[in-house]
Design a protein around this nucleic acid. Structure first.
Lengths: 103, 103
DNA sequence: TCTTTACTTGGCGATTTTGCCAAGTATTCT
DNA sequence: AGAATACTTGGCAAAATCGCCAAGTAAAGA
């Protein structure tokens, strides 16, 4: 079993884990350009509708997405505009050349 | 099985997944203040030494940490100075109040 | 009201991740 | 050389995650 962590670490993990799946990150990346309904996101990630729906629930419970039902469709959008900054940070870290050679 | 993603998404996932575990994030947070040997990190996270070592291998293969052996001890440090920015971004997203009320 | 559309939730097998123990490697000390 | 220290790797069981199918809910249309 995992030992206890600091509260701040726990809330950080909540966000990071939500983003740590290809389909979920793909969804979030797509929503940078504006809201989309679940059926569109389903076409994007290519898995079963129920699977997409569960991924969306995870992102929502992490506070990253908000939803709005209009007619039959449910639209999802980023609840945090600062998400682009986050991805820029990830990119800087994932490109080891610009990181490890810096020091 | 998960459908294919964009290459950039894949490399992002590589980094995010490495950070998506309490012990690993705790390790990385600790290394913000400077390098530490494995035995110190073991005391920090409180699990078996072999478990810590495997977590470190994951962080290393994601390009986030670099290691250096001096004597008997192995010291780990952040290979990317921009990591603090990353955590700031996570914190902004994890505090839903400062995000969703912004727009 | 009955049907259709769009989505969510329950459930379960399959895959992945995690953590401990045991064993192996490298370096230092005696 | 032999022992001790600091760590890594192999292996496996337990736990968590994932994705599909089936069933349920809500709104719109006939």
């Amino acid at each position: 079993m995992t030992p206890p962590q600091l509260p701040r670490t726990t809330s950080r993990i909540n966000v990071i884990k939500a983003l740590a799946h290809p389909s979920r990150l793909t969804i979030v990346e797509a929503l940078q350009h504006g809201e989309q309904c679940v059926c569109d996101l389903r076409n994007l990630v290519g898995t079963d509708l129920s699977t997409v729906s569960k991924h969306l629930a995870i992102l929502r419970s992490a506070g990253l997405l908000s939803m709005e039902k209009r007619g039959l469709k449910v639209f999802y959008r980023l609840s945090c505009p600062c998400f682009l900054d986050f991805l820029n940070c990830v990119d800087r870290m994932s490109s080891a050349s610009s990181c490890s050679t810096a020091g």
